[in-house]
């Protein structure tokens, strides 16, 4: 079922006729191209793309994007549909931070954004649909950004099914293990990422990383192609065992303090975008955060302007 008494004005910022928001995965496709994306929780399948959209997606996601194969059957499928620019309002993004509109329901999530309408449904298994007016052809076309914004949400829900979370974080590899620095915008993730990269470490992403349980009872960090300013966007990377889960703070000097399981769970919850506001899956999200926090070594890392963060990390034990 779709949104019950949808939040006042759902889609009103973006859509010319919010009442016409699609309630089922149907419409007229852009084309007949199909692609698969090898992201954590994948493969993610997309069908109904135009040739231009497919080319734009291949360009954006590089080796993470490929033609579908026989074994992809159980992947999460998104169908793309064409709508006209007149379905959308002209949006001036100056002066405010662009955020998607969500309408959460027991068996579906509706999403509205700039030139974007999408839904994620749990009729039998997770599936999705995206309606956009961007055909991927023109220079400056918004399609890559639209598709990425949408894919971020789908991946978040798919990983939740797998017992994991997409987390606002900087993910940095040191000595074969991944450190996850949790923090919302402005916490210092990108600064830390740049600094780490200059010092020769691999940055997975300075924006979003995937945290999942592994078979042995520990945790692993998987790279997502969703970055801010730092991190590879078009190539795969192996998963890394989680070394430390760290709440990032600014401080007068560097320090590493313990973080309780509850504190770590709260931090994961706060940094899990899209799903953490879904009241219909709240229990699942909280339980997942608690499970992940329970399996992690966690701490609070205060970072000063003086540098030497990695010495602090290596030298200290939370």
């Amino acid at each position: 079922m779709n949104g019950e008494a949808a939040p006042p004005g759902f889609g009103a910022r973006f859509l010319a006729f919010p009442d016409l928001f699609p309630a089922r995965r149907a419409g007229e496709s852009w084309g007949d191209r199909r692609l698969a994306f090898d992201l954590p929780g994948g493969p993610y399948l997309a069908a109904g793309l135009s040739a231009a959209q497919a080319a734009a997606a291949e360009e954006r996601f590089g080796e993470l994007c490929r033609p579908p194969r026989a074994g992809d059957g159980d992947g999460v499928e998104t169908r793309l549909f064409a709508v006209a620019p007149s379905d959308f309002l002209a949006v001036d993004t100056r002066g405010w931070e662009y955020a998607l509109d969500f309408d959460y329901a027991p068996a579906a999530v509706r999403i509205a954004g700039i030139r974007l309408m999408a839904r994620i449904d749990w009729a039998r298994s997770l599936s999705a649909a995206l309606w956009t007016s961007e055909d991927g052809g023109a220079a400056g076309d918004l399609f890559p950004g639209i598709f990425e914004n949408f894919l971020r949400v789908v991946v978040a829900y798919r990983l939740l099914e797998a017992g994991g979370l997409v987390v606002h974080s900087a993910g940095v590899v040191d000595a074969g293990a991944a450190y996850l620095f949790l923090g919302r915008s402005g916490a210092g993730k990108t600064t830390l990422s740049r600094m780490s990269e200059r010092a020769g470490r691999t940055v997975l992403s300075d924006d979003l990383n995937a945290l999942l349980p592994d078979a042995a009872g520990g945790l692993r960090v998987e790279k997502l192609p969703f970055t801010g300013d730092v991190g590879e966007r078009r190539k795969a990377a192996p998963p890394f065992p989680l070394a430390l889960l760290l709440r990032l703070e600014k401080g007068a000097e560097n320090s590493l303090q313990p973080l309780s399981k509850a504190g770590a769970a709260a931090q994961l919850l706060a940094c899990a975008p899209f799903v953490n506001r879904d009241t219909h899956r709240r229990e699942l999200v909280e339980a997942t955060a608690a499970e992940l926090a329970g399996a992690a070594r966690a701490g609070v890392l205060a970072v000063s302007l003086c540098g030497g963060v990695w010495d602090t990390l290596r030298g200290g034990t939370p």
Partner: peptide, 8 residues
């Protein structure tokens, strides 16, 4: 005209 629908 279309199979898009705002009901299901």
């Amino acid at each position: 005209l279309t199979y898009r629908c705002n009901l299901d």
